[in-house]
Design a protein around this nucleic acid. Structure first.
Lengths: 360, 360
DNA sequence: ATGAAAGCGCTAACAG
DNA sequence: CTGTTAGCGCTTTCAT
């Protein structure tokens, strides 16, 4: 190593300097740093990885979509990974890819990573638990792989769904319909489960579930169906995009939101406060989830023998805007003609703020 | 190497098998593969990289946002990188990070990559051209780094902006206002340039530019200002999120879209067809751009001596929906009271479809 | 068609 | 505080 020669020290000493190890005199450190600077020296990661057995990188398996949720999670993960000094390797799983999660995890293992993050995996039929030997953090799902250390994060979805449903019930709606996400996604299943639990607990009628694919287009299609239901007064949509498509379809069918039908979304995407009407929704704490999960993953990687750090539940954040309001007066017993505005019953509270965004 | 021993061959032969090199008899190949399978052998990438000097990985520098544009680009890049057998390393540049692009590129170089993709860089003051020794693909901007081989892709923004502006002018609007993106972004500057060029060419008045930060919230704020302008009849917004916030503000101010003011967005985000009114916008060909750019980057990496593959311009895709319509009759000379519906002049074409999504 | 020897650039383990 | 000796698992180069 040339740096060592120029600085007049051994290779090992150079190594010590660059790894911030103790026991290097200030003088020697200076000389090494100068020599390195002068030579434009940059240490070779491949060699480091080979010699030490650690790659100092973390792999993440994501869905190949630009959907707000997964994308936010990925950005959150990247930030923490970088902050902790690791490098990030990314592999997508494509829906319909036979290899699925297992294939993605495998390719990460081939590349060499010290830990793996599986973000919002979907339930691939073929992806049976392969066992891996590095710690794994699974976000928003039960673990699809076997590993000596499996951490999980972001599993508050069902509680958030409960809150959304309860909000609607508390406004006086007799029951709440659900526009679900694709049931191959755990995230979609959890939201459905939370919704169902609340309705069941309160002894409410469980209307049939309509399933979308997360897109506004699918929400629109579902909305055309739902608009025909005479007892429809409240819908909990599994994400904001579908809620927006749904609202468009309802509006076109002559139903007013929220006077005739209330709609709650999920995620709080950036435009949610600015669509018409501004969307009541449950904000997902993507950054917090990513950050906390990664901290724990890195801790396990670097202290394999310690007890894993405890997980914490982020608080549920229901953002009430203008797409939800009190149930229309006995609409299900005495259906007013669609598109007509029944005078709001005077004992119910006024709808939430009708215009300006609730936050920013 | 155990595989070699069990298969009864030399280490080198195992290497040949795994690299699909010629001159291995079918029999030997079988034995090696069996032995590897049996041992659960997986070749060590660090050692490969160390010995060969190639890491078989490509690094990408992205903005740390979940914005639809950057996120779509990243997903497109991931797909091609995976398809070509490379691994993907991701580093974000955070706005305000002093290290900026240069820092991100540096960390990628430290990690070891065979090529670098810089996606939609912003104009960091301090990030003066560092010279790097691997090929670089820059998407949507002039190159922020010096490299023996610099490729570029996705620079059709200015043409797309022209098309959006022309669409508005062709509808009879006297001039077009522009709600710009943050001018530190090249993407924002290109769109502004395209808009300005058209207006100038046609000898139209150039109204002052309002600058947002890509968010719906900033579009909303801009909309409140713009709503006060008596001659406002058409706005070209630099992205869809801002267009949505803008429309909300205009609507709240009593202006109808498109009867009083026409709005064109940029990107064609998935909800664009479902907001009210459905948004006329310019669709960005993110996947095509990523795919074509990466193909060329990989080609350069693997055939350093060949001529680089030629770039191609994707066609501009203006999606006309319901947020644009004919200019109101002489609104600037004889301003109708805000919020009133002037009867549409009968010689003008009807606005585009008012409801159902144009595509899916 | 296959093998032997050398070495990529670093860190681990131990000496001094 | 600093140096020596090995060797990580592969590819390279040259033999055979």
């Amino acid at each position: 190593m040339d740096v060592a020669r120029i600085a007049g020290v051994s290779q090992k000493t150079v190594s010590r300097v660059f790894n911030d190890e103790p026991y290097v005199s200030a003088d020697v450190r200076r000389r090494v740093l100068d020599a390195a600077e002068q030579l434009g020296y940059r240490r070779n990661n491949a060699a480091r990885a080979l010699a030490s057995g650690r790659t100092r990188s973390i792999g993440v398996v994501t869905l190949g979509t630009a959907l707000y949720g997964p994308a936010s999670l990925l950005m959150g993960v990247e930030k923490v990974v970088r902050d902790t000094g690791y490098a990030l390797r990314v592999v997508n799983t494509v829906e319909g890819d036979p290899a699925g999660i297992a294939g993605a995890v495998n390719s990460l293992l081939d590349q060499g990573v010290d830990g793996i993050v599986v973000s919002e995996p979907i339930d691939e039929p073929g992806s049976i638990s392969r066992s891996v030997d590095v710690p794994v953090l699974v976000i928003g799902a039960p673990s699809p792989v076997l590993s000596p250390t499996v951490l999980s994060a972001g599993d508050g979805a069902d509680l958030m769904a409960r809150t959304a449903t309860e909000h609607l019930l508390d406004l006086g709606h007799v029951t709440v319909h659900h526009l679900a996400g694709p049931q191959r996604w755990f995230a979609a299943r959890d939201r459905l489960a939370g919704w169902r639990a609340v309705l069941t607990e309160r002894g409410r009628h469980l209307p049939p579930v309509v399933e979308g694919d997360w897109s506004a287009a699918s929400g629109y299609r579902a909305g055309r169906e739902l608009a025909r239901l005479p007892d429809l007064t409240a819908v909990f949509a599994a994400n904001d995009d579908m809620a927006i498509g749904l609202i468009r379809a309802l509006t076109e069918a002559g139903l007013r939101v929220p006077q005739d039908v209330s709609v709650v979304g999920f995620d709080d995407i950036p435009v949610a406060a600015y669509v018409t009407p501004p969307l009541t929704t449950v904000r997902q704490p993507f950054d917090a989830v990513a950050q906390e999960g990664l901290k724990r993953l890195v801790h396990v990687i670097e202290n394999p023998d310690d007890d894993p750090l405890p997980a914490s539940q982020p608080p549920v954040d229901l953002v009430v805007r203008a797409s939800t309001g009190p149930a229309p007066a006995r609409r299900h017993e005495n259906p007013a003609p669609r598109g007509t505005a029944p005078a709001p019953p005077d004992h119910t509270p006024a709808p939430a703020d009708g215009g300006a965004p609730a936050h920013d």
